[in-house]
Simulated assay, not measured.
Amino acid sequence: MFPSQESLKKNFIVPSPSADAAAPSGVGLYARFALAGAVCCGVTHGAMTPVDVVKTRIQLEPEVYNKGMIAGFRQVVQTQGAGALLTGFGPTAAGYFLQGAFKFGGYEFWKKKAIDYIGVEKASENRTAIYLGASAIAEFFADVALCPLEATRIRLVSQPTFANGLLGGFSRILKEEGVVKGFYSGFGPILFKQVPYTMAKFVVFELAAEKIYSTLPTPKDQLPPSTITSVNLGAGIIAGTAAAIISQPADTLLSKINKQKGAEGQSVSSRLVQMAGQLGVKGLFLGLGPRIVMVATLTAGQFAIYGDIKRVLGATGGVEIAK
């Protein structure tokens, strides 16, 4: 009387849960990558604002903040109150939200372009070069978005009375110094810092994650989400430590150049050379300890959050070239 299960299967198509929504592709896929990157960078950098405040103070006033990171926290709280540890939170969160969208979304985009151009097999053989190239291009555009907000953040941290927050600091710099001199005088140093930093961050993460996965008995596509998140955290710590060390000299110069205006007619390059000569090798690595703690922590958090958000959004369409 009733049709058999076999008959139903032949005559009707029962959609699976995964078929309810088509996997994103094209603009939709990269928009998800960008959103995941924006959230992971905005959240992690915002959360690390107190560490960044202390690190910046050590770089800008080494004669005052010369007893290490923990003592630096105490000094800031004792002299200015606990609220001072959140100085620059607004421009930090906003700036790195924008930067994260361009960085992570751009990295996935340019990596895919390279893979399409040379083919998956050749891309896998040259994956380190692809990781480096894609991350460098993505970071350039990310820094265009980040630079004005980073300049505002550093001014607020180095001169606490300069303005009351993001909007006040941003508008004052724009009014008094203009777009190029006020916001982009540190563009050279920020590229010098962020591009090598991001290249190291992505290539070390990709290779570290690949190595970790190779030691596991279960294939990556069969691992539970908790294990993948743990791998992202571990590889992120390794990547963040390497990236912090490589980019530390430029980070110090960036803090210095944004602390105050340059002399009339003095170029950015001459200021950088002058500052580097005055600081010396030891001075260029001021604040390295706090920065390793900060960068390793936030990098691990970024890759963990990024992976989890991608999974929630269904943004799993990236091409895998790791062996």
Rank of each mutant, 00 (worst) to 15 (best):
Val27Phe: 14
Ser226Phe: 08
Gln80Glu: 15
Ala93Gln: 09
Gln5Met: 06
Thr229Gln: 14
Arg32Phe: 05
Leu149Asp: 05
Lys261Arg: 04
Tyr65Gly: 09
Lys111Asn: 11
Arg153His: 12
Leu146Cys: 02
Asn11Pro: 00
Tyr65Glu: 06
Phe104Asp: 03
Cys41Ser: 11
Asn258Glu: 11
Pro290Asp: 05
Ala36Arg: 10
Gly72Ser: 04
Val180Asn: 04
Asp52Arg: 00
Met294Lys: 06
Ala38Asn: 07
Leu223Pro: 11
Thr252Trp: 07
Glu176Trp: 02
Val54Pro: 04
Pro91Asp: 08
Lys122Ser: 10
Leu223Thr: 02
Phe140Val: 11
Val319Tyr: 09
Gly106Arg: 09
Phe170Asp: 05
Gly72Met: 07
Ser7Glu: 15
Lys201Gln: 15
Ser171Asp: 07
Leu146Gln: 13
Ala123Val: 03
Pro217Ala: 14
Thr215Asp: 12
Glu121Asp: 15
Lys103Gly: 02
Val293Glu: 02
Met1Ala: 09
Val231Arg: 09
Glu264Phe: 01
Ile238Asn: 05
Leu132Ala: 15
Gln80Met: 11
Gln266Ser: 07
Phe202Ala: 00
Ile58Ser: 04
Phe202Pro: 01
Pro196Phe: 10
Val144Arg: 03
Tyr117Lys: 13
Pro24Cys: 07
Ala322Val: 08
Leu174Gln: 14
Asp143Tyr: 14
Val312Pro: 01
Glu264Cys: 01
Lys220Asn: 03
Gly83Met: 10
Lys256Phe: 03
Gln80Tyr: 11
Ser171Asn: 05
Gln5Tyr: 09
Leu60Glu: 12
Gln274Met: 01
Val120Cys: 01
Ala114Ser: 08
Phe89Arg: 00
Gln159Pro: 04
Tyr306Glu: 12
Leu149Met: 13
Lys122Tyr: 12
Phe303Met: 12
Ala300Thr: 08
Ile305Gly: 06
Arg74Tyr: 13
Ala300Gln: 10
Thr161Gln: 11
Thr215Met: 14
Ser158Asp: 14
Pro62Ala: 06
Asn126Met: 10
Thr92Glu: 15
Glu320Trp: 01
Phe170Gln: 05
Leu313Arg: 04
Arg311Leu: 09
Phe141Asp: 00
Ala239Arg: 07
Ala138Trp: 15
Gly46Ser: 08
Gly106Leu: 03
Val120Gly: 07
Ala250Tyr: 05
Val77Phe: 10
Val195Ala: 05
Gly119Phe: 08
Met69Pro: 01
Arg153Asn: 14
Val273Ser: 09
Pro24Ala: 06
Pro160Asp: 04
Ser171Ala: 12
Thr128Asp: 12
Pro189Trp: 13
Val76Met: 04
Glu176Val: 02
Ser214Met: 11
Ser270Met: 06
Pro224Leu: 10
Pro217Tyr: 09
Leu174Glu: 12
Asn11Arg: 07
Glu63Pro: 01
Gln75Val: 06
Asn126Tyr: 10
Thr215Pro: 04
Leu253Lys: 09
Ala263Glu: 13
Ser269Cys: 00
Val120Trp: 02
Val295Phe: 03
Phe89Ile: 10
Pro224Asp: 15
Tyr96Pro: 02
Phe187Tyr: 14
Leu8Thr: 01
Glu6Lys: 05
Lys181Trp: 01
Phe89Met: 06
Phe192Met: 08
Ile58Lys: 06
Lys111Arg: 13
Phe303Gln: 10
Ala263Val: 03
Leu223Glu: 14
Ile246Thr: 06
Leu233Glu: 12
Arg57Trp: 08
Leu253Ala: 07
Thr252Glu: 05
